[in-house]
Design a protein around this nucleic acid. Structure first.
Lengths: 197, 197, 197, 197
DNA sequence: ACTCTCGGGACCCCCCGTTGAT
DNA sequence: ATCAACGGGGGGTCCCGAGAGT
């Protein structure tokens, strides 16, 4: 009877719900968890405030959790797409380039909601800490798998370094309002991601 | 004669003022700019609430700005102390180890207020963006000078990568509540900071 | 034939409906009208939230109205049972004792929903005012009939005083978290309810 | 130097504060604790919202507590004034008459905030329970002292009954929107408050 | 006949960052 | 150098319809 199996295609459940998650992810990038109010989220998502409580009984924390999950998915797709490149330094460059492009297009408003939330609320909320941890793990694993395939030694450690440096690069980019740091990082990291490095 | 020369011996102006700055720096590490209230700052600093706008006419933003400057000084001292080590990878290890120690001692509450503020408010407040930018620049320059002294090529780019990766590592440490990522980063980055790398 | 005769066998209409009424009566005793939410009622009654407006199109007000009617019935039964006692002071003592027992058993949570609702919403809602008025009238009449039978003068006035004092005693009991006041009232009122008083 | 000694003449501290207490007492009479919002209180008292938290750091509960204390004082004055009457039944009649007058003048909106709060929140909030208990105790004591002076036996028990019956009478008056019950109670109680009763 | 999802504002209490008077 | 006073949101929950589906 064509009813969505609950838990299977969550994103098909409700357009309002999805809009709220996407809006939250977006606002989280620019303002962080504490800087983003429910009023702004519902206003930007054109959602009534009463729906908040219906779709996200866990409140703002649940909403942020799902927004992080959503954003982690999006970035993972981008990352995996880039990693299809035969050359890993090129892949890294493409990934960093995409992030740089987003930063520039948004006047350096769109940072990384995962890293920001990890630093803001990671120590307070177990729920958000778990969500950010999972996001990082998935990204690191994606890179690590590619490095392993290429026979790069210490694949997981290096993948961790790559993700950390990119996150730090986004941070620097926001502070400097320039993507120069990101480009520098991409170049410096090249030797780390090749097997002869 | 009772007018302190601005910027020179600022820290000698008022013990209350200094306590507020140090307290703010500490709270910013754990909760970020928007998550930290003036009430908590004045309470923790044992400062009367009314003094806030006497000492910091620029309000919360000025207070955060000075806290970031203060924290940047402290970390710069630590960094320069570590960089006196004859071996740069060892220096990096010592630096990362000190940060790890702080994280562990504080149950991963004490992150980096500079990076956090850069992501939270960097796009909104020019003042805070400038403060975080300056902090990063000083740290990067300190590393770059040492690399140049050792004849490492692309010193500034690599120094940028080092600082970015360490900041990203602190982020990962908070998310995972473990310093494993920081240690991995320190190891992976070693080849980048030696002249034969 | 499937139409329940309204008012006659109302309680046979739906077990869910009855459970909601009983639950509401119970919550009204402890928290009052404004302090009791529909969410709590439906949750405690294990009733589906969507059924609310099917069973009670008049909303919360209708639900409270029926709960008061229901509670008035229960107390009237208790009162009439006590009044079968040949001695009216003994009857009063038994009635007050039963109320005291309920208060003590519930840690003084279970007061009187009728009196509480009368004071909370009696001035606002005609519907609830009528329901509480009817409840009080039935209780007073039950006492008055017995007093008349015993030849007590001013039966209705004295019955009114008895009910008022008992309601006030429940109030005092809740405030003091002690049933001492109720016992005192029962003793003091004895001369009023005998013909030679 | 001419500054009000704190704690001595509390009511002289701030006119805004006093207005808020009086307004709260008034609203509590008609709507109860849960039915009265802080918005309405501040609006009716022509007080800025931010002052709430300044004058009453304990929030709504503290405000209600002080309102109850204030109202208890007012009623105690009235009661003691009435009890100066040489005849206690007359005194009781005058007291009940004053309450009746208030009820009628306010279209039966102005009940008793003490009794209402005792029933609404007495079981939840220790603070409010204590405040209502103290109010009742003072009223009962005032009556008991007078009865003792007249040589009435069981003075405290009878005083308790008087206060309970009057409170219950106010309840009935609100339900019936008539002061008939209060007048009946006053008459019925007369024999209890004279020494030969 | 009955239930559930989803939506819809209004409003809750609390606390925020800020200032005028002193 | 201080503090009482100030408005304005903060997140959260309220009671209640509309629609589609058993």
């Amino acid at each position: 009877m064509s009813r969505a199996r609950p838990g299977l295609v969550r994103s098909a459940m409700s357009p309002t719900r999805d809009r709220m998650i996407a809006t939250t992810a977006h606002l989280l990038r620019a303002q962080g968890f504490h800087g983003t109010g429910l009023n702004q989220i519902t206003a930007d998502a054109l959602a009534p405030k009463g729906s908040m409580y219906h779709h996200f009984p866990g409140g703002k924390e649940q909403l942020a959790e799902e927004a992080i999950r959503y954003y982690a998915d999006v970035v993972l797709s981008l990352l995996e797409h880039c990693l299809e490149n035969p050359d890993v330094p090129d892949a890294l460059d493409a990934f960093v380039g995409a992030l740089s492009h987003q930063l520039e297009r948004s006047a350096f408003l769109d940072g990384c909601p995962v890293g920001l939330t990890a630093m803001e609320a990671g120590a307070t909320s177990d729920r958000l800490a778990a969500a950010t941890q999972a996001a990082f793990d998935r990204w690191i694993s994606a890179v690590a798998r590619r490095l392993e395939k290429d026979g790069v030694p210490d694949a997981h450690e290096r993948a961790t370094t790559v993700i950390a440096a990119v996150e730090g690069g986004v941070m620097l980019a926001r502070a400097h309002r320039s993507t120069a740091a990101l480009r520098a990082i991409s170049r410096s990291l090249a030797p780390l991601v090749v097997s002869c490095g």
